[in-house]
Amino acid sequence: MENKKTKKASILKGAILTGVIAGLTPLSVNSSALFTYDVLGSGAEVRTQILQEKTSDGTVYELKCGTEKKEDPKKKSEAKKSETTKAEEKGKTTEAKCGEGKCGEGKCGAEKKDAKTEKKEGKTEESKTTEAKCGEGKCGVE
């Protein structure tokens, strides 16, 4: 193992110079905010927490330049459906990011659920760096 000497760039250097910190001093802000920190947990835990949060106003972001399109009722019901399938959602969100173990035509003509189950089983936190892909799994269409 190589001992890499990394020189980390300071996030705060600029902030101190530009007086951002000065703007946060207790003169203007309650100092308790300065002493508060949270251990959020692993990436999977953070993702699960965020993904389980319900979208408060049902905002759906559309890929239309500069505009936000109102969602149609059909999409809304789809969105609701996805919210209600929490168990499925939970399984997905706790997946590790780099756990790649995909091959085989998981979704080609088969039930979506089956493919997801395979996915869930194949991925663990430890499998982050393994790669075993051949591109099958979704058949190019949702």
């Binding site: 997946e95 990011k97 892909k133």
Partner: peptide
């Protein structure tokens, strides 16, 4: 084409699950 794109899409979906949800599939 289908298989190569699937690899890319799966990689992105795994890497950005929150963005994936925000955009919609």
């Amino acid at each position: 084409r289908r298989l190569v794109f699937n690899v890319v899409l799966n990689t992105m979906t795994q890497a950005f699950p929150i963005a994936h949800k925000a955009f919609g599939s």
